[in-house]
Simulated assay, not measured.
Amino acid sequence: MPAADTTGPTRLLVVYYSRNGSVEKLAEAAAAAAREAGAEVRVRRAREVADAETMRKVEGWAESAARQNALYEAPSEDDAEWADAILFGTPSYFGAMATELKNFLDRLGPQWKKGSLSGKVGGAFATASWPHGGSEVVTLSLYAPMAHLGMVILPTGYTDEAMLEAGSPYGASAIVGAEHDDPREADFEAARHQGRRTVAIAAALVAAGEMPSRKPKEEKE
């Protein structure tokens, strides 16, 4: 039987939804740190499920969506199968993940059935407007679909001083206020740490021949 492919850079997929850009900035911070650590990274933005009329009722929504969609492709099932690790990012809407991100997760039924995401490393990060706006709740809520998909859930813990200043032990996060301010530098550093840590753990699983995305097709079926 052919050996698993343990060569090449670690593959990280960062899939996020951001209406105003705060989650986007955390996603880019995590992605940049992962690239600096030697990973191959794809950043994808989940697409709107609301219609154009609904989006026009919220100031700046359509314009921000158009800008981000021009920069980032929509996530695909192929992206998820390609990756060794996936980071999911979302704002907290009433303590729940964005519908747009949930829509992407709901399309992974075939991958769940095949077990093709089982063994991949998974993590989550979030933003909220207020200190008690649900960032920890929504990060933890993303653990559930990762568990159903058989992923290796990787919390950040307090594995770096950055996590003592920002984020949570469950994943990087930021409080951005009603005006959707940029995350603080401490928040960015927490996201960078999460990107580096995710890549390091995924790389160890790749080296051990345990990563499903690297196994020959015959082994996966």
Rank of each mutant, 00 (worst) to 15 (best):
T127K: 00
A172W: 10
R45G: 11
F104D: 06
N103A: 13
L154D: 00
A128W: 00
R67K: 15
G109A: 15
K120N: 01
E40W: 12
G89M: 04
T139M: 11
P110C: 13
Q111M: 05
A37T: 06
E36T: 14
P91C: 08
E73N: 09
A144W: 09
A65Q: 10
G109C: 14
Q68R: 14
P75T: 07
G134L: 00
Y72C: 00
D84S: 07
D106V: 12
D51F: 09
A166K: 06
T127V: 13
F104R: 07
W82Y: 13
L142E: 02
P169E: 02
R45Q: 15
A62T: 14
P169N: 03
T54W: 15
G95M: 01
R44W: 14
A98G: 05
Y143T: 10
I153L: 14
A65N: 04
K102V: 00
S76C: 11
A39G: 11
A124E: 01
Q111E: 11
W130N: 08
K113T: 14
P145C: 10
Y143A: 08
V138Q: 06
S168M: 08
A65E: 04
V43S: 10
L71E: 08
Y158A: 09
S118Q: 11
T127M: 06
P131F: 04
I153K: 06
V138G: 00
S76G: 15
I175V: 15
E100T: 06
L149T: 04
E77V: 13
A46V: 02
A96T: 02
V43E: 13
G134V: 00
E136I: 12
T159M: 07
K113N: 10
T156R: 04
R56C: 03
D84Q: 02
R107F: 08
L142C: 08
L142W: 10
M55P: 00
R45V: 08
G119H: 01
K120P: 02
V58S: 13
A172D: 04
Y158M: 08
E165T: 15
V121R: 03
W112G: 04
G119M: 03
N103S: 15
A62P: 07
A162W: 02
A174M: 03
S168N: 11
A70R: 12
G89K: 09
E81L: 12
K113P: 01
A52Y: 00
G95A: 07
A50I: 12
I153G: 04
P145L: 09
G60F: 09
A96P: 01
A98W: 04
S92L: 00
D84M: 07
P145Y: 10
S118A: 15
L87A: 11
A70I: 03
A62C: 06
R47G: 06
M55F: 11
F94P: 00
